[in-house]
């Protein structure tokens, strides 16, 4: 029953770790009427204390590193991190730059990568659905992506 409730009500906190706002807009599009993430109980909350899933966008800049770690530590367990966008996954076009840390996974553990620059809102939504599937069955569904 606890797992059921966790799968049915993922609350997101959105953290911009130095991105260009492209991915942020696409995340908001995934919540908009066309894809309506509220169907799956998704809700955007303001405080990290209420959240379950942390959505990071952007390569972590040097200044942002402390904020990312602090926000991650403030989320109560169990918590998950989803990275949206190519920059957050590996550094993207900012790879090997002197000011970025080449992706979120150098700072905090990451559960899911959604590549794309920016990813389509369908991909963001699909990523969250995959994470919920992994939560309920313990295994990530092995899809080739032909339905998209």
């Amino acid at each position: 029953m606890v797992t059921w409730s966790r799968v049915k009500s993922p609350w997101l906190i959105h953290m911009n770790t130095g991105s260009c706002n492209g991915c942020d807009i696409e995340i908001l599009t995934a919540l908009a009427p066309k894809l309506d993430a509220e169907r799956y109980g998704v809700k955007l909350v303001g405080s990290p204390r209420h959240a379950d899933i942390m959505i990071c966008t952007g390569p972590v800049t040097d200044k942002m590193k402390i904020a990312v770690v602090k926000t991650y530590e403030q989320i109560p367990n169990p918590k998950f991190v989803v990275v949206v966008g190519s920059c957050g996954s590996s550094g993207g076009i900012y790879k090997n730059s002197y000011i970025t840390l080449d992706g979120v996974d150098n700072v905090i553990p990451v559960d899911l990568y959604i590549p794309g620059c920016p990813p389509k809102p369908e991909a963001v939504f699909f990523g969250i659905a995959m994470l919920l599937e992994k939560l309920s069955s313990g295994k990530l569904p092995d899809l080739k992506g032909e339905i998209l």
Binding site: V2, S5, R6, K8, G41, K43, P78
Partner: peptide, 9 residues
């Protein structure tokens, strides 16, 4: 579901 999930965190 929201209530149960929040109370188990």
């Amino acid at each position: 579901a929201d209530f149960i999930k929040t109370s188990t965190k």
